[in-house]
Design a protein around this nucleic acid. Structure first.
Lengths: 222, 222
DNA sequence: ACGGATTGTTACGAGGTTGTGAAGGCATCC
DNA sequence: GGATGCCTTCACAACCTCGTAACAATCCGT
């Protein structure tokens, strides 16, 4: 379940937003001041932060600045009554991902929340990936190579899926073990190699493999 | 340089946006119809798409739908005069990442563009170095020289990586030993030299070496 | 120009890493 | 109960990597 942190001092508005988000299936954390919002962000690692700018005590800008300084990567949606362009620009400059001016419709608000989560956290949503003529459908758990569907075992699919999600970097054997096998130290590390070999046999045509060995590190999909 | 695809049929507005984006250092592609926009997106793989909804011929919604169907992952910013909440929700539902209603200030527009690129393309901020036509990607552990990927051994890559990080000064052999080999005193110092030689053989073209010898001190990358 | 010091280059064997086929255990489905 | 498919482990082969030695080339103070 996705966790949304709501930093908003107006009780009525906060209640409305919280209810709307919860109806959509989000877990909602609520802070009424900037300081408590920062603390909650640090302790509970929310997937998204909705931030009011006019807060008692620490301003929303300051909260955002400290969040980014602490390397919090969660997307931030600023929701405020301050609608001047300069305010918006300042918000984005500090690292906000979206900025909406009150009052805003509930449906639009929810749509923006969803869009931010979709973009910022693509791994949890079912998704499709494409690498040349290799297509991976995370929802249907199907893989198509050059137009023909390939039959993969569950474990092989998970392996390929992780590699596809990390398209921009290699994945170490330890990470693959953690992501695919879960917390189980009782797996000999060569097991990963064996399954990579099986995967290669199934998805590679002639020529170079789609899975590149990064020596001493792990594997990478290209 | 980031590429932005602008799909907008109003020539005046398109000109203004194009100019603003180019001043910010973006490369701008422009399409006046949905069909040509789709074709451009397919052929040129832009990093961001700015989409008008009211286009001659194919509607913006339809363009967006087809983009997502074709597995285009680039973020889409919808910019339109249609400000009804239902329109916005529909846009987000089809996979848009932001939705702004005309007229919108240039500064806000640019801030939103930047926010989308920042969020959608986090890898470019990662560990990458560039020295002329030499590119080093620390996440993928790949090296590209003049457009062609070069195959380096793990140790060679680490060596080059350290040199790249200290781009403005030389690195002594002792530092290289410490950083690359770790705390191991059992390495003959000439070992560094031999690996530097191997690196040079792999990444240098005809003329002078990219790795400069600093006599009595160490090496430096330029 | 000379000679010692420093660096460049090549070759090679030991050791390490990865690829791969085979075998067996286990669960599931008939 | 047998057949099947999946997963893990093992063993061996193939390949790669790296440290070292040896020699060549270059630098630099005299």
């Amino acid at each position: 379940m996705r966790r949304v942190l709501l930093v908003e001092d107006n009780p009525d508005l906060a209640f409305g937003l919280r209810t709307s988000l919860e109806v959509e299936g989000y877990e909602v954390l609520h802070a009424e001041t900037g300081g408590s919002g920062l603390a909650l962000a640090r302790d509970s690692a929310p997937d998204l932060i909705v931030l009011d700018l006019m807060l008692p005590g620490m301003s929303g800008y300051e909260v955002l600045r400290r969040l980014r300084q602490a390397l919090h990567a969660a997307p931030v949606l600023i929701m405020t009554a301050k609608g001047e362009e300069a305010d918006k620009v300042q918000g984005f400059r500090l690292g906000a991902d979206d900025y909406v001016v009150k009052p805003v419709g509930v449906l639009e608000f929810l749509a923006r929340v969803e869009a931010l989560l979709r973009r910022a956290n693509p791994t949890t949503a079912g998704h499709r990936y494409q690498f040349g003529d290799l297509e991976i459908d995370g929802d249907r758990r199907t893989v198509v190579v050059g137009g023909a569907e390939v039959d993969l075992s569950p474990l092989e699919f998970d392996l390929l899926h992780i590699l596809a999600q990390r398209r921009n970097s290699f994945v170490t054997r330890a990470e693959l073990l953690r992501e695919v096998w879960g917390y189980r130290a009782d797996i000999a590390s060569r097991t990963v190699d064996t399954h990579i070999a099986k995967l290669r046999a199934k998805i590679d045509g002639g020529g170079k493999s789609r899975i590149v060995t990064v020596r001493k590190r792990g594997y990478r999909l290209r």
